[in-house]
Simulated scan of single mutants.
Amino acid sequence: MSVSDPVADMLTMIRNSVSVKSEKVDIRPSKLKMEIIKILKNEGYVKNFKKITQGEMDIIRVFMKYDEKEQPTIHGIKSVSTPGRRVYSGYKNMPRVFNGLGTVIVSTSAGVTTGKKAVLSKVGGEIICTVW
């Protein structure tokens, strides 16, 4: 039986795009992926994104962000929860990435948010990924 993880596939596509210094990457859309990409844009990891239709298929086009030295703003992106191993955390035990310099993306009962906002709202949830 094969198990797919669409979120991990999206993160791998972003990681590969950054490693070859690509300008953009096209991703198959879902509500969860769209929320993760919105957080990446709000936190300053990607330049922009837009949802477009090519023929009968929808895609999310994510534009990568680089600094003035052509270095990517995403140094690393790692999936934490998988379909076979879900990782949960309460707001009191929310992990920190690089002593607060990175971002934890969490799926809470109030929606998908960053770890810092989840702690301020006092809600825990499933840890989706970490970005630094």
Score class of each variant (00 low, 15 high):
residue 64 M to C: 08
residue 54 Q to F: 07
residue 1 M to L: 13
residue 58 D to Y: 09
residue 30 S to Q: 12
residue 2 S to G: 00
residue 101 L to Y: 13
residue 92 K to A: 06
residue 101 L to C: 04
residue 78 K to N: 12
residue 96 R to Y: 06
residue 114 T to Y: 15
residue 104 V to E: 02
residue 132 W to V: 07
residue 39 I to F: 09
residue 32 L to C: 05
residue 38 K to M: 11
residue 51 K to R: 15
residue 98 F to V: 05
residue 119 V to N: 01
residue 109 S to Y: 02
residue 45 Y to D: 06
residue 27 I to E: 01
residue 78 K to C: 04
residue 85 R to Q: 13
residue 104 V to I: 10
residue 51 K to L: 14
residue 43 E to A: 11
residue 30 S to V: 08
residue 47 K to E: 15
residue 79 S to E: 03
residue 94 M to S: 11
residue 64 M to K: 04
residue 12 T to R: 14
residue 83 P to G: 00
residue 70 E to W: 07
residue 122 K to N: 14
residue 25 V to T: 12
residue 33 K to A: 04
residue 106 V to D: 00
residue 90 G to Y: 09
residue 97 V to L: 03
residue 122 K to F: 06
residue 9 D to R: 08
residue 124 G to M: 10
residue 46 V to R: 15
residue 33 K to F: 05
residue 58 D to T: 04
residue 21 K to D: 05
residue 50 K to Y: 11
residue 77 I to S: 02
residue 44 G to M: 10
residue 34 M to W: 02
residue 21 K to S: 10
residue 91 Y to A: 10
residue 26 D to A: 14
residue 92 K to F: 06
residue 27 I to R: 03
residue 112 V to M: 05
residue 75 H to C: 02
residue 73 T to R: 15
residue 120 L to T: 05
residue 20 V to C: 00
residue 98 F to L: 12
residue 112 V to E: 09
residue 53 T to K: 15
residue 84 G to S: 14
residue 127 I to V: 15
residue 5 D to Y: 08
residue 79 S to H: 02
residue 56 E to L: 03
residue 54 Q to V: 12
residue 25 V to P: 07
residue 28 R to C: 12
residue 97 V to I: 13
residue 54 Q to I: 14
residue 89 S to I: 03
residue 68 E to N: 15
residue 77 I to F: 02
residue 92 K to L: 12
residue 68 E to C: 06
residue 66 Y to F: 11
residue 103 T to R: 04
residue 16 N to S: 09
residue 104 V to C: 05
residue 2 S to F: 13
residue 51 K to W: 02
residue 24 K to W: 04
residue 13 M to Q: 13
residue 63 F to T: 11
residue 65 K to G: 04
residue 66 Y to T: 08
residue 56 E to A: 06
residue 108 T to H: 06
residue 92 K to V: 05
residue 128 I to N: 01
residue 45 Y to Q: 10
residue 80 V to C: 03
residue 128 I to Q: 02
residue 15 R to V: 09
residue 25 V to Q: 04
residue 82 T to G: 12
residue 131 V to M: 07
residue 103 T to A: 06
residue 15 R to A: 10
residue 96 R to Q: 10
residue 48 N to D: 15
residue 76 G to I: 00
residue 121 S to H: 14
residue 37 I to T: 04
residue 62 V to L: 09
residue 118 A to M: 12
residue 121 S to L: 13
residue 36 I to M: 08
residue 18 V to C: 04
residue 107 S to R: 06
residue 111 G to Y: 09
residue 124 G to T: 00
residue 51 K to D: 07
residue 128 I to C: 01
residue 26 D to C: 11
residue 14 I to R: 02
residue 59 I to N: 08
residue 73 T to G: 01
residue 115 G to A: 10
residue 12 T to F: 09
residue 17 S to D: 01
residue 52 I to E: 14
residue 73 T to D: 06
